[in-house]
Amino acid sequence: MNATRLTSHVSRGLLVTLALAGLTACGGGGRPASDLAASQVTTIGVNSYLWRAALEAVSFAPLLQADSAGGVIVTDWYANPDNPGERIKLTVSILDQDLRADAVRVAASRQVSQGGTWVDAPVQAATVQKLESIILTKARDLRRQAVS
């Protein structure tokens, strides 16, 4: 599935989720109805805010796989035009239906060009943590917008 069709599919899923939020407003044990809709409606299988935020965060790289039911996004190798001798590949996993800090995991691979071949190189832990933080911040912003 290409990125445009995927984004359209995810957008439709979010619209269904938001529409169902109104139907679930009468229950919830103190949690906002939009939280229940995002966490319990299985349109995409994982938290819709985290899913959308993760897709946006890795949108700079071409997608290899985006499995909304399993919550896995895998990018292809991406080389920054300003630094073509280095490339990265990302895997984002959404682990829960709730919007929680421990519900998103990012794994990164990095390679550098040496003598015309790509050689594995270490990824700084801060890089992965920063991307996780970006995803969580964007997901919280999306939730705030939906609740307002």
Rank of each mutant, 00 (worst) to 15 (best):
S8H: 08
S8E: 15
H9I: 02
H9L: 04
V10F: 01
V10H: 05
V10E: 04
V10T: 13
S11P: 00
G13K: 01
G13L: 07
A19S: 13
A21S: 15
L23S: 12
L23G: 14
T24W: 07
T24M: 11
T24H: 07
G30Q: 07
R31D: 14
P32L: 02
A33G: 04
A33D: 10
S34A: 09
S34N: 06
D35I: 01
D35N: 12
A37T: 10
A38C: 08
A38W: 02
S39N: 06
Q40A: 07
V41Y: 10
T42P: 07
T43R: 09
I44Y: 07
G45C: 11
G45F: 09
N47W: 02
S48N: 11
S48D: 10
Y49L: 00
L50A: 10
L50C: 09
W51N: 08
W51M: 15
W51Q: 09
W51P: 02
R52K: 06
A53F: 00
E56K: 06
A57L: 01
V58P: 03
V58K: 02
S59W: 00
F60Q: 11
F60H: 12
F60E: 14
P62K: 05
P62L: 01
P62R: 05
Q65L: 14
Q65K: 13
A66V: 14
D67K: 04
I73A: 03
I73W: 03
I73S: 04
T75I: 10
T75L: 04
W77I: 11
Y78N: 08
Y78F: 13
Y78M: 05
Y78T: 08
A79C: 10
A79H: 08
N80D: 15
N80I: 02
P84R: 07
E86R: 11
R87V: 05
I88C: 04
I88G: 08
L90T: 12
S93Y: 02
I94H: 08
Q97A: 12
Q97W: 02
D98S: 10
D98A: 14
L99Y: 07
R100F: 00
R100K: 15
A101Q: 14
V106M: 05
A108V: 13
A108R: 09
R110V: 06
Q111P: 03
Q111E: 15
V112T: 14
S113V: 08
S113T: 14
G116K: 04
W118Y: 01
V119E: 11
D120T: 12
D120L: 05
D120Y: 01
P122W: 05
P122Q: 10
V123F: 01
Q124P: 11
A125N: 12
A126C: 02
A126N: 10
T127A: 12
Q129S: 13
K130L: 07
L131V: 08
E132W: 00
E132D: 11
E132F: 00
E132S: 12
S133P: 03
I134C: 01
I134R: 12
I134V: 15
I135R: 05
L136P: 06
L136K: 02
T137M: 04
T137E: 13
A139G: 11
R140F: 00
L142W: 02
R143Y: 06
R143V: 01
A146I: 06
